[in-house]
Design a binder for these strands. Structure first.
Lengths: 214, 214
DNA sequence: CGGATTCTGCATCAATCGCTACATAATCCA
DNA sequence: TGGATTATGTAGCGATTGATGCAGAATCCG
């Protein structure tokens, strides 16, 4: 926050003084995994320094504070999972294919991580850290908006009837995806997650068969 | 834990010594709401004593420890919401009606509380308290088992084809219900939750129309 | 080399954590 | 009333929390 150079990693500038003895990216990844698994409040600085393999002064010099480290861990999480979560979605030819790819890729990702989605399951706002809570809330909202925009695009392309409720479709997909994070954290296996996706797509198809105005 | 009388509230026995100056049930309810909203780790004893309106010695005399208080708050939560969550489910004539009632009652409950379900969203196990984590995990699993048993019952009654995958149906319903907790905590309104339920029931109906073996 | 700069490890800060000892207050039974 | 029992309030326990001061080490530029 206070030092504008420290957070940006200063890619272009030549580093002066004693060089950092640890890999900042790896330390950040370790912190991310810890925050991901235990949440913000239950993760202490000593947990972090142990997992990152550094002392607390190095942590604070490199990341500023626990809150700033969490914010950066969130960004790192987003960078790491952007492609796997949205690649198929963006490449799909239709909104239906996009949604199905999105849910299937989510299922695949969740069955590997087994922690659920860091963004979906974060309760950092409710834990009393409103600024960080706003970060995760806006990240969640971005998913809903992406879904809605893709559906609107499908409407413009004539793929989906203009009278269909975009928000309803998107909310449903979001709900299923969120729920998958929870059952995955409780140990659901890939096959179960895939079955959930299949049933969700049945709902999608049935909803688009329904008369739009009832 | 150590004192067998303290946790059971000793309804029948005559109380001796100085009487308690606070309402144990109300204090427990206050603790439950705090744990519900903030989670286990982010809720401190001073938060609790402030919300319960008592001193810490009274808290420990009445509830034993923070962990025991959380466990009792969980039970209290279950008792408070058992009827509203499962009343319609148990009264329904068919499995389909039961599931729809379960999801609709969930939607109604979530739109009031706006915290999501305390059991669904608890991460106390991941926070490092495995015993409490086992409690919430088994509570979540109980929901899945109830759903599965109701579906099996419907199969026995000839209402649902025996070849349909019980676990798949139950997992889907559980996933949708879990997801609803998350979007409710993010501010989804009753109408949006109801729309999700409607779409979930489309999936239910479509799944039961599908040929069981593919 | 010397001086500036930056990072690391040790030690520690004030604050808070979960929890409790202790003296006093309020009730019961006799 | 007096002794037994239980609850309350103050005050504080040792441990841990998030976060730093500081001396020394390691690099840069000149």
């Amino acid at each position: 926050m206070q030092n504008p150079e420290s957070s940006g990693e200063g890619c272009g500038t030549v580093r002066r003084g004693r060089p950092r003895a640890f890999d900042r990216e790896k330390a950040l990844a370790a912190a991310m995994h810890l925050f991901w698994r235990k949440g913000y409040s239950a993760t202490s600085i000593s947990d972090l320094t142990a997992a990152m393999g550094i002392g607390s002064p190095s942590l604070y010099a490199a990341f500023g504070s626990k809150e700033a480290l969490y914010a950066e861990a969130l960004e790192h999480y987003g960078r790491m999972h952007e492609a796997t979560a949205w690649g198929g979605f963006l490449a799909a030819a239709t909104a239906r294919d996009a949604v199905e790819a999105f849910l299937r890729d989510t299922a695949a990702g969740l069955s590997e991580a087994a922690n659920g989605c860091m963004v979906t399951l974060s309760a950092v706002g409710a834990e009393g850290h409103e600024e960080l809570g706003a970060l995760v809330t806006s990240a969640r909202n971005a998913t809903l908006i992406r879904l809605e925009e893709r559906i609107e695009q499908a409407k413009a392309a004539g793929e989906i009837d203009r009278l269909v409720d975009t928000h309803r479709l998107a909310r449903f997909v979001q709900t299923v995806q969120n729920g998958m994070s929870l059952i995955a954290r409780d140990g659901a296996e890939l096959g179960e997650l895939i079955a959930v996706v299949d049933m969700a797509m049945l709902a999608w198809d049935a909803q688009l068969r329904e008369p739009p105005h009832v």
